[in-house]
């Protein structure tokens, strides 16, 4: 028996990739939910409504101050208890066992994501020049119109590197989803290794997969950054119908 089965590292990758959709789904759903919740939290903190901003501050501190592993376990054990309590209080009859582990994992990952994303988003929102917000107000745009059309597009440019980082973070965070009985690539790897005791090989395979995913995401972010950048040079505007032939100065 070989000490290190080099061939296995690559040959078992297809078996692991069967569960890649689960990993990506976990990451995408958590990221999306986390970013939206993060945006809400960021606005709560910025709007300086006393109670709301305190709640947001407390939430962010609590979530950032506890490990993701602990949060996953709390979600896994806490949500069924919450449901049982609701059953007890309202006489309803929900069965916690029917809830797939995916829901617990996504809940925990999204909550974790939201706390980190909200700070990235808050910093990016605050980086938008006040003058432009005033200009938007002065032409009679509502706050939500201003947010959607002026603030968010500009903030996105600033937030993109941070959010990209955070997305890479959550992809790797999904490797802990086995705690909620979700089988994604890491859990799949552990099951495979349990059969042939090739644990080292499987973790090397997993490392390669995660790294390649991250490289792809880095490239996508770079592409998106290039797309949203203001071009260095622009051609002069040519009116379609030169009515009078009068040259614009």
């Amino acid at each position: 028996m070989k000490l290190f089965d080099f061939g296995l590292v690559f040959s078992q990758i297809p078996k692991l990739l069967e569960y890649l959709p689960v990993t990506l789904e976990l990451a995408l759903v958590s990221m999306l939910a986390g970013t939206l919740l993060g945006l809400l939290l960021a606005i709560m903190r910025m709007k300086k409504v006393r109670v709301l901003s305190q709640i947001a501050g407390f939430y962010i501190s609590l979530v950032r101050g506890t490990p993701i592993l602990v949060q996953l376990y709390i979600a896994y054990f806490g949500i069924p208890m919450l449901i049982k309590w609701i059953n007890l209080k309202t006489g309803s009859n929900y069965v916690p066992a029917n809830i797939p582990g995916f829901v617990y994992a996504v809940t925990a990952l999204a909550i974790n994501q939201s706390a980190f994303d909200s700070e990235i988003i808050r910093a990016s929102l605050q980086s938008v020049d006040r003058g432009q917000i005033e200009a938007a107000s002065s032409i009679g745009m509502t706050y939500f119109q201003t947010l959607r059309r002026i603030i968010l597009p500009e903030a996105l440019t600033v937030a993109l590197p941070g959010l990209g980082n955070s997305f890479i973070g959550v992809i790797k965070g999904t490797s802990l989803a086995f705690t909620c009985a979700v089988v994604e690539i890491t859990a799949r790897g552990q099951i495979l290794a349990g059969r042939n005791y090739r644990y080292f090989e499987v973790y090397v395979s997993l490392a390669i997969i995660y790294w390649v995913i991250t490289i792809i995401i880095e490239q996508l972010i770079r592409l998106f950054e290039r797309k949203t950048r203001i071009p260095d040079q622009v051609e002069q505007y040519q009116p379609e119908n030169l009515k009078t032939g009068e040259a614009a100065v």
């Binding site: 020049d129 003058g131 432009q132 107000s137 002065s138 032409i139 009679g140 002026i150 500009e154």
Partner: peptide, 20 residues
């Protein structure tokens, strides 16, 4: 506020154009 702002225009010292 919207009524007033929609009936008045403002030109700022620092232009404040939307940069994007």
């Amino acid at each position: 506020m919207l009524y007033i702002r929609r009936n008045t225009g403002m030109v700022f010292q620092k232009f404040n154009l939307f940069e994007k």
